[in-house]
Amino acid sequence: MKIWKSIRENYQNELILFGIFVGLFIVMGIISPDKFLSAGNLQTMCYQMPEFGLMALAMMAAVLTGGMNLSICTGATVASIVAGCFMATTFANENPAIGVFVGIIITVAVAAVTGLLNGVLIAYVGVTAMLVTLGTKLLFEGLGLVVTKGGSLAGFPPLFLKVGSGALLGIPYTILIYIVAIVITYFLFERSVWGTQVYMVGCNETATRFSGIATRRTVLLVYIYSGIMYGLSGVLISSRYCSAKTDYGSSYLMQAVTAVVLGGTSISGGSGTVAGTVIAVAIIQVVSNGLNLVGVNRYMINMITGIILIAVLIVRYVSGALSDKKKIRERAARARA
């Protein structure tokens, strides 16, 4: 009971979001029980959600520090293109297991390096995150184009497809990777020393630095972490196509911002939960998948996502303004008494 109460107090926003998610899930289930709730469709969702979810976690990390990461998508593709150069070799094709394994490692490692570049420029040089990642977005995209000559890089071992489509005990690898990433992210951000420092830096960098925290290092690690997350997403994306190309997944950039904000993370930094982001991702996924099944045009689905975002923000503002007014009235009443 007590636990429930503390959840209700501390995770109010997440509970509302979860309610919306459940509501949407039920509505979709009623509208199209045979299609939406079919095992095949649920599995499809499980394959699709992780790519997007990992991108959203990558974005969330940056937003928590009061920053922004516009380079998540091109960072992911440049990493998978570099890895692709290795996976397309005859060596990799002759030794598919090693080839795929090393390929995945290279993707994540290169993505981490792209994150390192962002982090150094943001934390140590001190340039606004928005500008740095706008620059690196173009840089990574350009490097990818230079390697691929604008086309796609293919010829990977067919085994690589298994990453995106295989399953362990009926659970897709993709969803396993996503769950592990969520759990790790939760512990890192909401339970660990470093994560707490991230939130503090996002609220007030000066006070945190004055408390003896190496805030530059904290921020640098955030962007490396962001790189690892979009690197993993890059692995899933290129595995789905079994190839690598610069514009794969490019639509995830703005969607990731949408999910993070919808999930309750403050765009000015310092507050937000992993659960909120994950639920927001699930909401967007259910909306797009469900409406798609009942034959709603995919553009219409995007539109509905945008409307949900704006509506939630307006509701949050209005209810916040109302409760502020109430508080002021109460305080005035107390002062009079």
Binding site: Y199, N204, A207, I213
Partner: peptide, 16 residues
């Protein structure tokens, strides 16, 4: 502005 992270709790501030 320098001593406290105002939007965070007493606990978070003391143990930072």
């Amino acid at each position: 502005t320098q001593g406290l992270v105002l939007p965070k709790t007493i606990a978070d501030n003391i143990t930072l």
